[in-house]
Design a protein around this nucleic acid. Sequence first.
DNA 1: TTGAAAGCGCTAACAA
DNA 2: TTGTTAGCGCTTTCAA
Lengths: 323, 323
Amino acid sequence: MKITMKDVAKKAGVGVGTVSRVVNGVKVKASTYEKVHAAIESLNYEPDEYARGLKTNRSNTIALIIPTIWHPFFSKFAYYVEEALSEKKYKLYLCNADGRPEKEAEYIQMNKQNKVDGIIAITYSDIDQFISSNLPLVSIDRHFSDEVAYVVADNYRGGQIAANKLIEFGCHNLAYIGGTSPYPNETNDRKAAFYEVCKKNHFPVKILDMPEPISDLHEQLNHFLSINSEIDGIFTINDFMALNVIKVMKQFGKTAPKDYQIIGFDGVKMACETDYVVSTIVQPLKEMAEASVEILLKKIFNEPTEQRVVFPVHFHSGGTTIL
Amino acid sequence: MKITMKDVAKKAGVGVGTVSRVVNGVKVKASTYEKVHAAIESLNYEPDEYARGLKTNRSNTIALIIPTIWHPFFSKFAYYVEEALSEKKYKLYLCNADGRPEKEAEYIQMNKQNKVDGIIAITYSDIDQFISSNLPLVSIDRHFSDEVAYVVADNYRGGQIAANKLIEFGCHNLAYIGGTSPYPNETNDRKAAFYEVCKKNHFPVKILDMPEPISDLHEQLNHFLSINSEIDGIFTINDFMALNVIKVMKQFGKTAPKDYQIIGFDGVKMACETDYVVSTIVQPLKEMAEASVEILLKKIFNEPTEQRVVFPVHFHSGGTTIL
DNA sequence: TTGAAAGCGCTAACAA
DNA sequence: TTGTTAGCGCTTTCAA
């Protein structure tokens, strides 16, 4: 049998309202508190969250929508989001959307169903239609509309830093390698900034920009790198692309940083205690996760909040550049 | 204003019971269905999950407790658990317990609060006290009691395979390097099996077994490997330990598989499309995740189920062995 | 300060 | 086949 407030009330010799007050920390007479508290303890009472949620329209739960948790960038982000939420007594629904916009839509619907109070999303699919202006939503790396808050790293600055570092490290023939999502997001700034800095400094720069989803990545890299064999400084859209490039270059007998240098983006580490896997432009994911949570909670409580927060990035060597 | 069943019923000119039937897929007259369906669509009605949960005592949610999502082994597991649950229309609460048993306990309590229907846990802390026999719980890699189901890889066989492979690959001086959790789990079998096979084949074998939490890992490895410089075949408790060993060996000027060979355990890959990072004993994590979900759902529905499922492991080369 | 009571939106038993 | 209704366990208003 399930213990309810009624049981506690009867045992303590008070009304259910009083039990509710004690449970919710509303002030009651000290002696009443003692009685109720004792009854709760002895019955091992736990409030039913669903009954509470029905009354209050609050679930104390938010959903995190990401492409896949099985990727160090997203799992690190999820890690910090969960940490921050846990501190505020919020629970986290995990959604691996992975190219299924209908799954994203489903979680967004859950806001109307009272199952989630808000959503943090890293999404590259076309879900604009599902996003209403009164849905508490924080988006990462992508701008939906002026009503949707978003948190982003300084992608533009990142592209500049990458170009400057490669030039500083003595590269002469630069290249950018990346993919472009069909739905615009701010990661495109990385390429733009890189290109501009190269041009401004009169360095030749080749671009390989593949529309996503990318097929025959390996082949395309192979082709691009073989017809442009003079390339000695590469900037990639992210660290995983850098790893793929490194693999292809190895087949050509080239290793970094001896024969060329390469800088990725994201600052991927496998886990908390491990090292960066390539030289990279690091996004402050912890801070970004915490900011997302903070903004989302403000939205949920209808407090005023920033609509766009930009975080600084920095270069970190991972052994694929000379420094 | 929130749209409720009452609104739908009024609009469709039926009773709320009928709306409920339509929503839950119970058979009604075709014409009634049409009317109700049309009303639902036009009002954009979404059932309140909390009201439903209050009645049914079901949340269609389960919690996944892991040490940290920011680790490819756990994030891969979480990925497949979420996939399997999503298929069954279940939602997943993510809990990074990370050495905080009180956090694990909190999620276990949530079962009583009706917030979760069951739990899948990978835990190395002392939570036996919180686990009652009627809690639907599936444990990974660890046996709690005969009432708690658990899913495990064939750790013993894994240790045997590792020893046999190293011997087959020509190693003569073997070593096991691992850590031991204060709470017993089946990963200890890896060491035992490895040791036995080495002994049976009359190969010398050195053991470095560090009690967790491990302090000065680097120093301990350094010491062990320098006083046992003859070692040319190493088996580690997991892939991350292998990576640490590789780092230390590099400082001694030794690289695998040229100067020694090393096999880890787990089969860690950073993400779906990437490669294994070391030669390793692979656990079939996808199958284990799916089995966990299946068993848990059976427990939730009070169906009979296995209490212990063991999965086979296999060797996979990741370049730190000659084959 | 507290008890009684009215719902929150839904499901399911019962009656029609 | 369908409508009516009694709660599920809680919060919160209103009186006392």
